[in-house]
């Protein structure tokens, strides 16, 4: 996965970049299965490797598929990234080790969900009962975000198409 990400940094052909990002999210899906998150892996495989690749390819067809080559290498981003990464790694020294059942995350509301959800909600898939029932507000918000994003895409590029058609028909006035 890190190798894929590294080649993403180096690659200039945007077509290859998009394909690699598809591979990247497929690998992420495999990692989610290893970490027991089957629902998440499911979503990631369908979304990351399917839909977003198609959308990116559509954008490439609309814009350009080659990145401009000649660019100056500036050390500043590298320095910033290295410093931030070092700080983050220093911060991980305080994190609980991987798979530790005594980590604080497992002792707040999670045990309640695992023990009571069959009784209080019903479905055997705990993820579904949390998603739809315990955290219904959350999911309502997320659905609204998706709705808004689609409406935003409509407003951004769906509208320009219509305006272009209209200006083609009436008179050749250039819009902005």
């Amino acid at each position: 996965m890190a190798v894929t990400a590294y080649s993403l940094v180096r690659m200039h052909n945007l077509f290859a970049v998009v394909m690699l990002s598809g591979i990247y999210s497929l690998l992420a899906a495999v990692i989610y299965v290893v970490m027991d998150a089957v629902d998440v892996a499911f979503t990631e495989a369908a979304v990351g490797a399917g839909i977003s690749t198609v959308l990116m390819l559509g954008t490439l067809a609309l814009t350009t598929s080659m990145e401009k080559d000649a660019k100056m290498f500036s050390p500043l981003p590298l320095v910033i990234v290295t410093v931030t990464g070092a700080l983050l790694i220093y911060a991980t020294l305080d994190m609980p080790p991987y798979g530790d059942p005594t980590a604080p995350i497992h002792h707040h509301v999670a045990p309640h969900y695992i023990e009571k959800s069959a009784h209080e909600v019903g479905p055997p898939n705990i993820v579904t009962s949390i998603l739809a029932s315990y955290r219904g507000y959350d999911t309502l918000g997320e659905t609204t975000v998706i709705f808004t994003a689609a409406a935003g895409v409509m407003a951004l590029i769906g509208r320009s198409r219509r305006r272009k058609k209209k200006s083609d028909k009436s008179m050749p006035v250039e819009d902005s």
């Binding site: 839909i51 959308l55 559509g58 067809a61 609309l62 479905p123 659905t143 998706i146 198409r161 058609k165």
Partner: peptide, 29 residues
């Protein structure tokens, strides 16, 4: 849960198809 999952499914499918069709329409224009 069944009802709201159905609502979520409708919205997500509608959003993805709409976005795809808009990109395609722009491409054709």
């Amino acid at each position: 849960i069944t009802l709201i999952e159905f609502g979520v499914g409708l919205t997500v499918a509608g959003a993805m198809i709409t976005i795809f069709l808009i990109f395609d329409g722009l491409l054709r224009a």
